[in-house]
Design a protein around this nucleic acid. Structure first.
Lengths: 205, 205
DNA sequence: ATTGTTTACTAAACACTGTTCAGTAAATTT
DNA sequence: AAATTTACTGAACAGTGTTTAGTAAACAAT
């Protein structure tokens, strides 16, 4: 009885079809301007069909949120090859900034928008993707402690502190709140600040 | 010829009436769920009338954005009484966190939402409110340098770094991305992180 | 092969949204 | 008193997320 399996496959195909269209529109014109009807137009189905595969718009964007974390984790995965643990943590920071600047819509989805988190909340699940990448940061910090770079033992608090700085830096930039600097100076100022921050953690963490 | 003056007064009254209603709804049910029609209902005028006093919704929320900055500046104003410049900077941080936690919707409006910044952009003005409060931070840092607490001379970079951390910390919390900690632990973790950060800037800035 | 049943899909509607505009009634000026 | 300006609104436009009733095709049972 392979019919059920085929149906399941077809269902997955359809979910992917919808998600691909959603991602395409979302990345090219942003979240707010992407409507269910737009997505339906692209895949040449009725808007109502989308609701047979995704509960609502929140759930649809939570699926993209998951993808985005996969992408970030992928871009951070090759860090394991770096031997020196402090250099690895710094490179992690560089790549985090790079990811945010190159994928502003994804970053918004992952860390700022409330829609994906609401999709989680109403199925009362934990924020696994966030937890996993937070775990990666904690691991990188733990390695620095092990290697003798950091003395501070409360890894959790160190992780929050570093992540807060990183998130603050990129989201001030992404949400256009660095307009006190000329456009061409903003990225430069971010780099300068990042250098200062690395000095700060090196000397006192 | 006092008629023009009266008319101007009446116009200001109307603008305030609209803004008061907008603020009320906005703070009680959030930005997204507040519509022009909701505001119109409260003031018992037609929705079209609102457009005679505010260009669009962005401009309406930019007006609230200005108010929010006034409120923040007010809550930071009494800092001048603190003698020790480092203690003053720390207290500034405390009040920043307090403001964000107690006024999440206002904080969103000021530093995260793109609507107010768009209202600015299409009148191509600078972000004066942001600039002013950034100036206050720079002043507080400069005083720390003057008092010998900090050696670092690039105040601008120091300010970005400190603000980035502060903004990151509170917005991770406000946007519900601290769900890896139990609800009752989140504020405590923030405090711990803040203590760590103060140690960091004290020792290396 | 012909029923009955389930599945996949959609047109249309519901209740909204921001915004514009023609038309009206009152206030002001001539 | 007539003409003009001002303040306001009803209705519409073009969209939004979402639900529901109904249809046609696929499948299962006889």
């Amino acid at each position: 009885m392979g019919i059920l399996e085929r149906k399941e496959r077809e269902r997955e195909d359809m979910r992917r079809l919808i998600l691909n269209a959603a991602r395409e529109l979302f990345l090219e014109q942003g979240y707010e301007k992407t409507s269910i009807r737009n997505i339906a137009d692209v895949i040449e189905y009725s808007p109502a069909t989308i609701y047979l595969y995704y509960k609502d718009k929140n759930e649809l964007f939570f699926a993209l949120h998951e993808e985005a974390f996969l992408k970030l984790m992928e871009e951070l995965s090759s860090l394991q090859t770096i031997q020196d643990s402090f250099a690895r943590l710094i490179e992690m920071g560089h790549r985090y900034i790079k990811f945010a600047v190159e994928n502003p819509e994804l970053y918004d989805l992952m860390f700022i928008m409330k829609a994906p988190i609401e999709a989680l909340a109403c199925r009362d699940e934990v924020w696994e993707d966030g937890l996993k990448s937070f775990g990666l940061l904690k691991w990188a910090i733990q390695e620095c402690v092990n290697a003798g770079y950091f003395k501070n033992t409360d890894i959790e608090v160190s992780a929050i502190t570093i992540w807060s700085y990183m998130h603050g830096l990129v989201s001030i930039y992404l949400k256009n709140r660095m307009s006190m600097f000329q456009d061409n100076q903003q990225l430069q100022r971010m780099q300068q600040s990042f250098v200062l921050f690395t000095k700060m953690i090196k000397e006192t963490l």
